[in-house]
């Protein structure tokens, strides 16, 4: 019960004039403070919907979501949500895009704005500070979107396939970077991904969802040897392959 976030029998259906689309049924799980949780599942199974529910953008059709034992609407925890697409606004410069969250939350103090410049440097975007996002590559845009989320200093990070637009090499380095940051700042994170290796290498636990309407198929604890906890090293851990195969099996077993 000491979980930071807990979902109890949460279901969600989309309603439209053409009918009802059940997206999630009876989802229950808890996330302890400081955990890195990964969620994998087939396309369209309701992963993005799940994050929108946690972020409070959608109300659950049934069940409830609590943070530190309080209802979602009564809590003051900062949730950072990085959407599947970067959605950088093309009429703003990169810098002004990154300041968007601070502006909206009226936290655009000099210290916070200085943090943007720091992060721009750290992510190799300093040269594009005053460029329009249209001149950024896919990977740069993704990193910019991540900075936009991080400058708000969220306690809980929701990441919806944050690395999907990156090429393989960048993907591994960026995911390693992000993992280090999240660990260093002791943040709690929920990562959605299609990539099983990514899920195993980054997270403490992996939740496997079934096809739509999504239900929890399995929850798998990832326990690699402590020396191999960074995403890059994790890939050479002897148990990595076993976890990979186990999740692969969970994902494919029920498809026939």
């Amino acid at each position: 019960m000491g979980d930071l976030l807990s979902l109890n029998h949460v279901s969600y259906s989309y309603h439209s004039l053409t009918g009802e689309t059940p997206a999630l049924t009876d989802i229950s799980f808890g996330v302890p403070d400081g955990e890195f949780l990964a969620i994998v599942g087939p396309s369209g199974c309701g992963k993005s919907t799940l994050l929108s529910l946690i972020a409070g953008l959608l109300p659950p059709s049934s069940g409830n979501i609590q943070i530190k034992g309080k209802n979602l609407s009564d809590q003051d925890l900062h949730i950072g949500y990085m959407l599947q697409k970067d959605h950088l606004l093309d009429w703003r410069t990169t810098y002004r895009n990154l300041a968007l969250g601070l502006e909206i939350q009226k936290k655009d103090t000099p210290e916070n704005l200085a943090k943007i410049d720091e992060l721009l440097k750290a992510y190799g975007l300093a040269a594009f500070r005053d460029a329009k996002p249209s001149s950024l590559s896919g990977g740069m845009r993704q990193r910019a979107a991540l900075i936009r989320t991080l400058v708000l200093n969220p306690d809980l990070l929701l990441l919806d396939e944050p690395f999907s637009a990156l090429d393989y090499q960048t993907r591994i380095t960026v995911s390693d970077d992000i993992w280090q940051i999240i660990r260093k700042e002791k943040k709690t994170a929920i990562l959605i991904t299609h990539d099983i290796s990514e899920a195993v290498s980054m997270s403490d636990r992996v939740i496997v969802l079934s096809k739509r309407p999504g239900t929890i198929r399995a929850i798998i604890e990832i326990q690699l040897s402590p020396g191999n906890r960074s995403p890059i090293k994790a890939r050479s851990d002897p148990k990595f392959k076993d976890y990979f195969n186990q999740i692969w099996k969970e994902l494919t077993d029920h498809e026939i």
Binding site: A55, L57, L83, H87, L89, W91, R92, E103, I104, L152
Partner: peptide, 24 residues
């Protein structure tokens, strides 16, 4: 989704109007 972005950043309807609808 642009509107959703503003909401994920904690924005209100006013923010949606001034940060997305009008400038775009």
């Amino acid at each position: 989704d642009k509107i959703k972005l503003i909401r994920t950043l904690g924005g209100t309807r006013k923010d949606i109007l001034f940060k997305v609808i009008l400038p775009s």
